[in-house]
Amino acid sequence: MIKERSRYIVIRFISSSPMNEREAWKAVSLEIRKIFGVYGAARVGLYLSYFDFELQTGIFRSSHNCISHVRTGLCYIHKYNNHYLYAFSDYVSGTLKKCKEYLKNPKSQTAYSSLRQLLLKQEKPLKTQ
């Protein structure tokens, strides 16, 4: 049997109310489970390895075969707790160390902050039901 390797995915979250570690994990994993079911989610093997509250960025670990599943799940994320939520993958690597280095990279930070400004500028509050 071929050994399953893991990949670490840097996922950025942009929302008007900041998310904590648990909420970030829930938003991504629920969407993956909705689309691929319990069996598919088990194949993905999603695990939140690291979360930076200030940057609103998480590093998720998944099976190397199933990165497309995680990215597809991100496509379907629109809102969480009555707030619009934008989640997108930014970087993929084989080690957690490289992903953490990427977070500290000033180039990636400026790109992310400009994107954040752009998205939050036009956001209107969601109507509560």
Partner: peptide, 8 residues
């Protein structure tokens, strides 16, 4: 993102 569109 283009990579997310490609993943879908």
């Amino acid at each position: 993102n283009p990579l997310e569109l490609a993943a879908l």
